[in-house]
Amino acid sequence: MQVLTVSTDRPEEIREGRRVHGLQAIMLSDRTLAVTDAFGLRNQGVHSGNPRDEVEALPVPTSLLVGADGKVLWMDVSANYQRRTRPEVVLAALRKHLD
């Protein structure tokens, strides 16, 4: 099972996060929001990012489980950025769709 992350962080910021949190995922830097826009996940609400970060917008926090055929099996979208998907919710989705 591969895990891939997409954020607007710069590669060096992602490297630091990988080091601090011991992450093994494929971690992509989407400064131009090209990947975010390809998935249609650019937040249309208020842009509340770090003003020094110089990105136009941010993705809506979203988890997607994609099958081997490339189809989305399950997804969870945050209605507000202050609430995140709990790990057990993601694990339950993995068990349900991949077992």
């Binding site: 992509l28 090209a34 990947v35 998935f39 996940l41 650019r42 994609v66 490339g70 997804m75 950025y81």
Partner: peptide, 22 residues
């Protein structure tokens, strides 16, 4: 958080994409 119209949905095939990694 507000999604644009045309956001990906369950059952859709994910788009091809490329981006730099860390």
């Amino acid at each position: 958080q507000i999604l644009p119209p045309g956001a990906i949905q369950v059952g859709d095939t994910i788009p091809a994409f490329r981006a730099p990694d860390d």
